[in-house]
């Protein structure tokens, strides 16, 4: 008892208290833009050095400043690409993925300055420029990602209306069971329209439909148009179809936003891998021909 009371316990308590009381801000605002400032200082220093230091015969990757900028650039790229490992490797210790993301975004943006200065504004059709272009593709897709992360979550939350993905699918399944029995009194042609809604894959739109939310071949919309509210049985089916349409819209909205939150990664990650491959070729060829 006495031994437990002294030592480690207290510091965890004060750290926990600090956590429970800590500010609640996004990765962009993390620690009052700490990484933005670091990135600005880094880029500012690079610009100043480029402007003030006399490079002979002309600014390019081969001067000592060019090598320095290139080394900083390649180390940054390798470190930035480790975010994917950090995210999945849940080790102990006081790291925070939010801080990593924050640093990833701002230091990644600073590469625009560092990488461009490293080129000395010399571009042509070779592996060096390929590496530069790939880096810019990675950075631009990253900016797309930051914009997606900053704007889409609120829509995702609003669309969810407190339902989980499973609950949305369950709600649809419940509507389908009711539709199945409600369609019994309908005539053959109309009943077939209703049955078509039940058998249609809700993801039938493919990748395009998923990203745009446009499903022109939606059987539910078609059945809704064809089945009126004439008598009690029709009215009931119509009301159920209307509910089904709404439920489908929610599920499709959910899928659309989730897809938009991820689609940029399909460019960002492969471009990163290609960038690292091009970088290796760039570095080896530079030293080979040195």
């Amino acid at each position: 008892m006495a031994s437990r009371a002294s030592g480690a316990g207290k510091s965890r308590f004060s750290r926990d208290e600090a956590r429970r009381d800590s500010d609640h801000v996004s990765f962009l605002k993390h620690r009052r833009f700490r990484w933005l400032w670091i990135a600005l200082v880094l880029s500012g220093t690079a610009v100043l050095a480029y402007a003030l230091i006399d490079q002979e015969p002309r600014p390019n990757g081969g001067t000592w400043l060019g090598y320095t900028l290139g080394t900083i650039g390649v180390l940054l790229i390798l470190w930035l690409s480790l975010l994917g490992v950090r995210k999945r490797h849940i080790t102990t210790g006081a790291w925070s993925l939010k801080a990593w993301t924050s640093a990833h975004v701002y230091l990644g943006l600073s590469l625009i300055v560092i990488g461009t200065l490293h080129t000395g504004f010399q571009v042509s059709w070779n592996v060096h420029t390929l590496a530069y272009v790939l880096m810019m593709v990675v950075i631009l897709s990253g900016i797309w990602g930051v914009i997606a992360y900053a704007t889409l979550p609120a829509h995702l939350s609003a669309n969810r209306r407190e339902m989980t993905r499973i609950e949305m699918l369950d709600a649809l399944a419940a509507l389908d069971r009711q539709l199945d029995s409600a369609a019994q009194p309908l005539e053959r042609a109309e009943a077939d329209l209703v049955l078509a809604t039940l058998t249609q894959d809700i993801f039938h739109g493919g990748a395009w439909g998923r990203l745009t939310g446009s499903y022109p071949a939606c059987a539910t919309a078609r059945a809704l148009k064809a089945i009126g509210t004439g008598d009690e049985a029709h009215a009931r089916v119509h009301a159920l179809l209307d509910k089904r349409r709404e439920q489908l819209a929610q599920i499709r909205g959910y899928l659309r936003i989730k897809a938009l939150l991820e689609i940029w990664l399909f460019l960002h990650i492969p471009a990163t891998i290609a960038l690292i491959a091009a970088l290796i070729a760039h570095v080896i060829s530079v030293f080979y021909y040195w």
């Binding site: 956590r19 429970r20 993925l97």
Partner: peptide, 25 residues
């Protein structure tokens, strides 16, 4: 017993996950 504290908060990439106590929050 895990150094660094709650993993859910540490592993959130955007800062959405926070753990708080009512008297402070």
């Amino acid at each position: 017993g895990i150094d660094g504290g709650p993993a859910c908060v540490r592993a959130c990439p955007t800062g959405a996950a926070i753990r708080v106590s009512p008297d402070k929050f």
